[in-house]
Design a binder for these strands. Structure first.
Lengths: 210, 210
DNA sequence: GTCTATAAGCAGATAGAC
DNA sequence: GTCTATCTGCTTATAGAC
C-alpha cells in the first residue's frame, strides 16, 4: 500500500523527464570519459543520465556494450560534421585545415575530452570497438591526405603527413590529460596547418600506401 | 583430514616456486597492459603471476593499487636506463638520439606495449598515478631538450621539439594499438632523430618555459 | 518508459591452516 | 610464503508494478 502511494506520488511530481536520446548519449560519453569504459559502472551511468538502471536497459538492451556503441556512433557522426566535413568543403587548403583544427578543438572540448582510442581501445572494450575506431582513423587520414594533395604534396608525402598529424593529435590529448595541461593540445592544433602544408620534410617517413 | 592430505601433497609436489619479484612485476605489467587497470581483476592478476590471491596480498598489502605502483616504479627505472641514460651519455647528439629510439623500441616492445599514460591515467587509477606519470614525462622532456640544446638549438626551440617528440611517441603507441599496426610506431621512431635535430621549424609552437 | 526490488555472480580483500 | 575458504559489497542484468 505504501509502495502504491510512493509510485503514485512519483508519477505526479516526476513526470517522466524523457530527455532526448542525444542528450542521454552525451551524458553517457561524459561518464565514459571520466571513468573509462570499465570504470563506468551501470550505477554511475544511471546517475550520469538521471535514468534508473532498468530504464537504461530499456533503451539499450545490449547493456553497457550497446551504450558504448551508441555513444561511438554519435561521436562518429559528430566527428564527421566537425572535422571531416570542413576538410571536404571547398576553399583554400590552408583555410580548410584551419576549419579542421577548429572542429577538433570543439570535438575534444579544447583538450579536456580524452581521446576515444584511449577509452574504447583497451581491455574488454577493445576487441569490440577497435574496428570502428580503426575505420574512423582511416577516414580521417584519407580526408586529410586529400587536402594535402590539393595543396601540392605528392601522394606519399601527403599520406605520411596526414598520419603524423593524427598521431600528434592523439598524442597531445594523452599527454595533456596525463599532465593536466590543456595548453599542450591547443599548441599542437595551432601548429598543425602550417606544419602540414609548410615546406621541408618534417616527420617524413617511408609512407606505406595502404 | 582430506584437506590435511591435500596440503601436504601440495607442499611436496609444488615446492613454492618463489619466482623473483622482478618477474612478478613483469607479469603484472603484462596483465595491466592487456586488460587496463580496471579490467585487470585480482583473479586475473593471480592467474598471470601464478600466485594465489592471498599470496599477492602478502607481497602487496595495499592491494591492486600497490601492485600498480610497484609496476610503475619498476617501469620508471627501466625507462631511466633504457631511454634517459642514453640521452645523458656522451657522444654526438644525433647518436644519442638514436640510442634513445632504440631504448624506446625496447621499452615499448616495438610498439606492442601500450603507453602507460593510457593504462594508468584513466579512471580510478588516474588520480593516484598521474603525479608519477607527470614526473616521468617531465624528466624525459628535460633530458631530451638538453641534448637538443647541445645540438645547437636555442632553449625554447629545444623544449618545444622535445615536447612534440613525446607527443609523437605516445600518439604513435595509441594509434598503432587502435589500428593494430605496429609499423606506425616503428616509423615514428625512425624519423625522430632527423626530425629533432634537422633544419626548419617543424611543429614549432610558442614553447612555454615551465 | 519509468521505477523498485531482487537475482546471480564477481569484485577486492582477509582469516587462518600449513 | 603459499594455499583454501570465506566475507562483504558492488557488478551486470532482469522481473514486474505502474
Amino acid at each position: 500500500m505504501i509502495d502504491l502511494y510512493r509510485s503514485f506520488v512519483m508519477m505526479i511530481v516526476m513526470p517522466a523527464p524523457i530527455i532526448p536520446r542525444e542528450e542521454v548519449l552525451d551524458r553517457l560519453l561524459a561518464a565514459f570519459r571520466e571513468h573509462g569504459y570499465d570504470g563506468a559502472s551501470i550505477s554511475r551511468l544511471s546517475e550520469a543520465t538521471g535514468l534508473g538502471k532498468a530504464s537504461l536497459y530499456h533503451h539499450f538492451k545490449g547493456g553497457k556494450q550497446e551504450m558504448a556503441e551508441a555513444v561511438l556512433i554519435q561521436s562518429g557522426s559528430r566527428f564527421s560534421s566537425l572535422v571531416i566535413a570542413p576538410l571536404r568543403g571547398g576553399g583554400e587548403p590552408r583555410r580548410r585545415l584551419r576549419a579542421m583544427t577548429a572542429g577538433l578543438s570543439d570535438f575534444y572540448a579544447r583538450g579536456q575530452g580524452s581521446c576515444l582510442l584511449e577509452l574504447f581501445g583497451i581491455g574488454a572494450a577493445g576487441e569490440r570497438f577497435r574496428p570502428r575506431l580503426k575505420g574512423a582513423i582511416h577516414r580521417f587520414r584519407n580526408a586529410l591526405a586529400a587536402v594535402l594533395g590539393e595543396a601540392g604534396l605528392d601522394q606519399a608525402e601527403a599520406a605520411s603527413r596526414a598520419e603524423n598529424a593524427i598521431i600528434a593529435i592523439q598524442g597531445a590529448l594523452v599527454v595533456g590529460r596525463a599532465t593536466g595541461d590543456q595548453s599542450v593540445f591547443r599548441r599542437t592544433l595551432e601548429c598543425l596547418p602550417d606544419s602540414l602544408v609548410g615546406p621541408g620534410q618534417q616527420r617524413v617517413g617511408p609512407a606505406e600506401a595502404k
